[in-house]
Computed example of a mutant assay.
Amino acid sequence: MELKQADPKGLIRESYRIEGISEAECRSIFMDWALSLAPGTNTTEAMRTVLALYEAPADHPMSLILAEGLTRPAPGTQRRGGAAGRRL
């Protein structure tokens, strides 16, 4: 995937340039970034692309959030509890 596709507005790039940025601020930027991706874009591939191409420090809050996004199971793969879990 090309960087232009993976970070169309440069939000992730800018988050790495902000000194002293907090995890909460990075989560907000991450949400804006995810919403700015073109429909049908593979978000997992986009996260891998920005992590690799920006060569960001592993301890940066945005790197931690991106890594967390890569390790979490895809929506719908976890069991749902209650009445929703009993419906097919």
Score class of each variant (00 low, 15 high):
Glu23Asn: 05
Gly69Ser: 12
Thr71Lys: 15
Ala52Ser: 10
Ala67Trp: 09
Arg48Ser: 04
Leu51Trp: 05
Thr77Gln: 12
Gly85Arg: 10
Ile18Asn: 07
Asp32Gly: 00
Gly40Asn: 06
Leu35Gln: 06
Thr49Ile: 03
Gly82Trp: 10
Thr49Trp: 03
Ala38Tyr: 08
Gly82Tyr: 11
Glu23Cys: 02
Leu51Phe: 05
Ser22Phe: 07
Leu35Asp: 03
Glu23Val: 04
Val50Ile: 07
Gly10Pro: 01
Pro57Arg: 13
Ala74Glu: 13
Ala74Cys: 05
Leu3Lys: 11
Leu37Met: 13
Gly85Lys: 10
Asp32His: 09
Thr49Lys: 14
Pro57Ile: 00
Ser36Ala: 15
Asp7Arg: 03
Met31Ile: 08
Thr41Asp: 04
Ser15Asp: 04
Arg79Met: 05
Thr44Lys: 13
Leu66His: 04
Ala74Lys: 14
Lys9His: 11
Pro39Cys: 07
Glu19Asp: 12
Leu35Ile: 00
Glu2Pro: 15
Thr44Tyr: 10
Arg72Phe: 06
Val50Asp: 02
Ala46Tyr: 01
Leu11Arg: 08
Ile65Gln: 05
Thr41Phe: 03
Tyr54Ile: 00
Ala6Asn: 04
Gly40Ile: 03
Pro75Lys: 09
Glu45Thr: 14
His60Cys: 05
Gly10Cys: 02
Arg13Thr: 01
Gly76Glu: 13
Met1Arg: 15
Thr44Asn: 09
Pro61Ala: 08
Asp7Ile: 03
Leu64Val: 11
Asn42Ile: 03
Leu53Glu: 05
Glu55Lys: 10
Trp33Phe: 05
Ile18Pro: 02
Met31Val: 08
Thr71Cys: 13
Gly85Met: 08
Arg48Leu: 10
Ala74Val: 12
Ala34His: 01
Met47Arg: 15
Thr77Glu: 12
Thr71Val: 13
Pro57His: 06
Arg79Gln: 07
Ile12Ser: 01
Thr41Gly: 04
Gly85Glu: 08
Asn42Cys: 09
Gln78Lys: 12
Thr77Leu: 11
Arg79Val: 04
Ser63Leu: 04
Ala58Cys: 00
Ser63Ala: 14
Ala58Met: 06
Ser15Glu: 03
Leu70Trp: 11
Phe30His: 03
Gly10Arg: 01
Met47Glu: 03
Ile29Arg: 08
Tyr16Cys: 08
Leu11Ala: 02
Gly40Pro: 04
Arg87His: 06
Glu23Tyr: 07
Ala56Leu: 06
Arg27Cys: 00
Ala83Asp: 12
Ala83Ile: 14
Ile18Ala: 13
Met47Cys: 09
Ile18Val: 15
Lys4Tyr: 03
Ile21Pro: 01
His60Ala: 12
Thr41Ala: 09
Asp32Ile: 00
Arg13Asp: 01
Glu25Ala: 15
Met1Tyr: 13
Ser22Trp: 07
Lys9Arg: 15
Glu25Thr: 06
Pro57Lys: 12
His60Pro: 04
Asp32Met: 07
